[in-house]
């Protein structure tokens, strides 16, 4: 019986091991990775892109966040399965560059971008496709009017934030505070500590706590009221962007180094800067498109801060050290 067991297990392993399962083998297939909130692109643009370029577009949005997606792409470096990744932010671009997983491409459609400040990578490892301001959303029945960031510091366990180690929203919130406070950011976080109710692994978990009424405020986006108006025709919550300045999150599309279909991947990067892709962004991704398209009525409720702050490349390059310092404050 023992011999039979060993034989069976080894045979199954060998037989199954011979089978290939590489979805990107087909020359006319383009594989796109993104995080799960981007799953709308399956319905919104897949058919259009396939008919335009006579190819098959495989879209994998199983990743919880861009960091989750990047870690898989880094593992696949020896034999890339994806051709394109969507969702790279400036902070995570550094990680991607460190692991040398991206390929450069300068799209001719970059000229369509309405504000050249959105081009956050001058080396063209990534191409911006949407942006939006981070904001604090809050329930006005529980929280009074807020003016500046230090008002948050006065709260007592009201705010839900996202873990910057596992969430790009959380990471950008951390960057926002660094942009505002510079070297003093650690002291400010120590003060903020008592105002934080919970630190969740991602935006969805934060929103679940906010929606259930457990938390009175959360770190989110300035387009949330547009979402609320569009689906519920009401805007019961409020948006707070401190008068010190807002922080813009920009997301980009990149071609994977060693992509099996580089030419088609380039076509896809060009495509994300066309009207066909960009006009789908407002009501699906709830962010602003990077080229001028007609905006839906709901976006009258979306806020674009008049004053913004940003971080230097030096800060972005020391992201590991910043995360370690953040951990030391929170552990």
């Amino acid at each position: 019986m023992m011999k039979r067991t060993i034989f069976l297990v080894v045979s199954v392993l060998l037989l199954m091991g011979c089978k290939k399962n590489n979805p990107a083998e087909n020359a006319t297939t383009l594989t796109v990775y993104s995080y799960n909130s981007m799953s709308w692109i399956k319905d919104a643009i897949k058919a259009d892109f396939e008919s335009l370029y006579n190819c098959t577009l495989t879209i994998d949005t199983q990743f919880t966040d861009t960091g989750d997606m990047l870690s898989k792409v880094v593992l696949e470096k020896k034999d890339p399965k994806a051709d394109i990744i969507l969702g790279i932010t400036p902070a995570l671009l550094i990680k991607a560059k460190q692991h040398d997983i991206l390929s450069q491409y300068k799209s001719p459609n970059l000229k369509n971008i309405k504000n050249q400040k959105l081009l956050f990578d001058s080396n063209h490892y990534t191409t911006p496709y949407d942006y939006g301001s981070l904001a604090i959303i809050y329930n006005p029945d529980k929280i009074g009017d807020l003016k500046n960031f230090s008002d948050l510091w006065k709260m007592d366990k009201q705010l839900v934030i996202q873990d910057p180690r596992t969430s790009s929203t959380g990471l950008d919130f951390l960057m926002w505070t660094i942009a505002l406070y510079g070297d003093n950011w650690k002291n400010e976080w120590k003060s903020l500590h008592k105002g934080i109710l919970a630190t969740t692994s991602g935006w969805s978990e934060s929103f679940a706590k906010f929606e259930s009424g457990e938390a009175a405020m959360m770190v989110s986006y300035a387009t949330d009221l547009a979402y609320s108006y569009h689906y519920y025709k009401t805007v019961k919550n409020k948006i707070f962007i401190p008068e010190e300045g807002g922080y813009i999150q920009i997301e980009g599309a990149s071609i994977i180094k060693g992509a099996k279909n580089k030419k088609l991947a380039e076509k896809f990067i060009d495509y994300v800067l066309t009207k066909n892709f960009q006009e789908k962004i407002p009501l699906n991704q709830w962010m602003f498109p990077v080229i001028d398209v007609e905006m839906p009525e709901a976006f009258n409720y979306a806020v674009e801060p008049e004053k913004t702050v940003s971080i230097s490349n030096e800060i972005i390059n020391s992201i590991d050290s910043i995360l370690e310092q953040w951990e030391s404050i929170n552990y």
Partner: peptide, 26 residues
Amino acid sequence: ILSVGNIKYSTFETAITSALTGRINF
């Protein structure tokens, strides 16, 4: 731990996930 805990109550299992997705430090 993720649902009712907080960062300071991290277990090795949650720390592994953070190291995988945030730091990409295998």
